[in-house]
């Protein structure tokens, strides 16, 4: 495992833990899109179905379990916790996430490595992950004033994507494999979605002012 992949995994892990701790400690989830969190839970469950069939490494298995349980915990807090659920911006979080699920599932049925249950689930999870942040980005834009932790959550998620692309470039040159185009294209789309957010995040950091997205 190269350093880019490891840093990507760590920023990914950190983003989820930041969000979970924010919700746990403050008992609020304002500014957090429940739809995005549910999409991520679906992404993790669909992709990590191989947890019990294919063993890669202890590291991989532990990380998979952590990602599934932490995103399930976030969704549970937002749906069930008596205090947290009341702070959810339901009226603002209106993105039609079922459309994303349906569209990416159809895409996975058409473009996959093999037409098997596992491979379709894998391709579906890759496509869905690429667009799962959309409800969150829309919600951030509606709320305008982004609180620090939510901003950091999206920042770390974006950093994870950037590191993964560096990881693929590194692997392309150091390993003899030919690239899989499904994660490449989906990964580039996914990283591109953060470009706008990164720009405003950088500005707010440089000018040392609170992050505010344009309407």
């Amino acid at each position: 495992m190269n350093a880019f992949r490891f840093l990507g995994d760590m920023t990914h892990l950190f983003s989820v833990l930041v969000l979970l701790l924010k919700i746990y400690a403050t008992k609020t989830c304002s500014g957090v899109s429940r739809k995005t969190q549910e999409l991520y839970l679906l992404v993790f469950v669909a992709r990590y179905l191989d947890l019990f069939t294919d063993y890669i490494s202890l590291y991989n298995s532990v990380m998979k379990i952590v990602f599934i349980t932490s995103s399930a915990a976030i969704v549970w807090y937002m749906r069930r916790h008596p205090q947290v659920r009341r702070t959810y911006d339901k009226e603002q979080d209106t993105f039609r996430h079922s459309v994303l699920v349906a569209a990416t599932f159809v895409l996975a049925l058409i473009f996959n490595d093999r037409f098997t249950f596992r491979e379709i689930c894998w391709a579906f999870s890759i496509y869905l992950e690429a667009v799962a942040i959309l409800p969150q980005l829309v919600l951030l834009q509606r709320c305008r004033n982004v609180d620090n932790l939510t901003g950091q959550y999206v920042f770390f998620l974006g950093a994870y994507r950037a590191f993964y692309i560096l990881n693929w470039i590194y692997r392309y040159f150091t390993e003899g494999h030919h690239s899989r185009w499904i994660p490449w294209i989906a990964g580039l789309v996914q990283t591109g979605l953060y470009a706008d957010f990164f720009y405003y995040y950088f500005l707010s950091w440089k000018n040392n002012v609170k992050l505010e997205l344009p309407a």
Binding site: R5, I56, N60, R171, G176, H177, R180
Partner: peptide, 10 residues
């Protein structure tokens, strides 16, 4: 050389 990259990432 022609093998596809393994699915060993998260």
């Amino acid at each position: 050389d022609c093998l596809p990259a393994p699915k060993d990432e998260l």
